[in-house]
Design a protein around this nucleic acid. Structure first.
Lengths: 231, 231
DNA sequence: CCAGAATGCGAGCGGTCGCTCGTGTTTGTC
DNA sequence: GACAAACACGAGCGACCGCTCGCATTCTGG
């Protein structure tokens, strides 16, 4: 490894002047710069998808964006920052698109329907943005990314857990809830891999399988209608 | 990349004499050599586990084995061959340990029991040999390994599918069976990740979760006792 | 016992990769 | 139009990595 400046700052790669406050306000950007950043992130997404994070070279990303390596480093302090920024934007898209995803379901909804809706949204998001899966799934990430990783994962587990506490019998203990949430998420992720590996009708069939697996897993725990926990 | 000699031969790295038949019989090994190979494979397992395949350096493997880089290349033609040989040995151990794993189950066995036994064996094998999971799961493998990968995966899917045809109603179509087998295997793998990420009682709890997920997934398809397909 | 094969060593070759730097071009501001 | 800041370039630096090569040492068969 050449150098580890471990400066994980926002895109503002070069700073105008080392501010006396110690905090460096983000460098002034022109519209052209913002466009370049977008270009570079899209190129990065494409390259990451094709080869994975660690095998992706910054030169390849620059080339894909039709830009010189030097230009890339005008906007990102290092390779890791590219992945982090890309991840951040994806997470925001996730939130924006689905708001409080896995959102509150009306009591009385059939379990299968609630699960189906959640799976469909999750699958749609991922098929439209294959990078998301690559970044979430790749075990070849340096420290900084793994953190963001785990943070997102923890958030999702928390969200699922919140949903579950309102469904499971009230005497269910905390650890049990967390465990169930982890299992649901793992099934989600494993199923997603299967789904992304197929096309057309076959893909749809696998989506249905995920729904079945989750529904049957949860049914004995929550009853077949929400708000109506099994005895 | 320096060179791609793409010679994926068995450990015999250097060959005695280019045999006129075109086939090169494996180089004569002394006991010392066999011991070194074992040492190197164990070192490789440890390094792969710690850092993943692509991040593992051959020099690090040699160092871990207490040996010079040159010595390593006396026994393996390249880095890929190390992983392949390691994988081969693991697969053989898998076969030897569990014979015709996921073996025929006596008709009348409760589904939960059959699933439980299979999961327990699979989990035991993997907890004793964490490299196996690393090699199977890592998406950062060069071509040659990915092939072996897929071959093993296909074998396992085939095995599970064979088991399923004897359980599912006889009018179930082929694609349905394969799909179900893929889903079972994915659940297995996803669950394994969860299991390996925890210790002690928590780990046991996750093992139970995998069993529950699989049992509940399969129950509606095969009935709650084997040899007694649901209508 | 001795020739030759097998084993062992480690500096270093050729290559890639992340990233820098000196320099030139475009853009916004007064 | 002038001036500074932002943007763009691309050769190339330093670090590392997979792998080689020449040479020393140990084993083994005859």
């Amino acid at each position: 490894m050449p150098d580890k400046p471990d400066q994980s700052q926002k895109p503002g790669a070069g700073t105008t002047a080392p501010d006396a406050t110690g905090k460096e306000q983000p460098r002034r950007r022109q519209a052209r710069g913002e466009r370049r950043i977008q270009q570079l992130l899209e190129a990065a997404a494409s390259v990451f998808c094709a080869t994975g994070y660690s095998a992706a070279s910054t030169n390849a990303i620059a080339r894909e964006a039709g830009v010189s390596p030097g230009t890339l480093y005008q906007f990102f302090p290092n390779k890791e920052a590219i992945a982090i920024e890309l991840g951040d934007r994806l997470v925001h898209e996730l939130r924006d698109t689905y708001g409080e995803a896995l959102a509150p379901v009306a009591p009385g909804t059939p379990l299968a329907e609630a699960v189906g809706a959640a799976v469909d949204r999750f699958v749609a998001f991922n098929t439209e943005r294959p990078v998301f899966f690559t970044l979430m799934h790749g075990p070849d990430m340096p420290g900084g990314i793994a953190e963001a990783h785990d943070a997102l994962h923890a958030t999702l587990v928390g969200r699922v857990a919140d949903l579950l506490v309102s469904l499971l019998p009230s005497d269910t203990d905390q650890a049990r809830v967390t465990r169930t949430a982890h299992v649901c998420l793992s099934i989600y992720k494993a199923g997603l891999e299967l789904v992304l590996g197929h096309q057309g009708a076959e893909r749809q069939a696998y989506v249905q399988e995920i729904k079945d697996v989750l529904t049957r897993y949860l049914e004995p725990l929550v009853g077949d209608r929400l708000g109506d926990p099994a005895p």
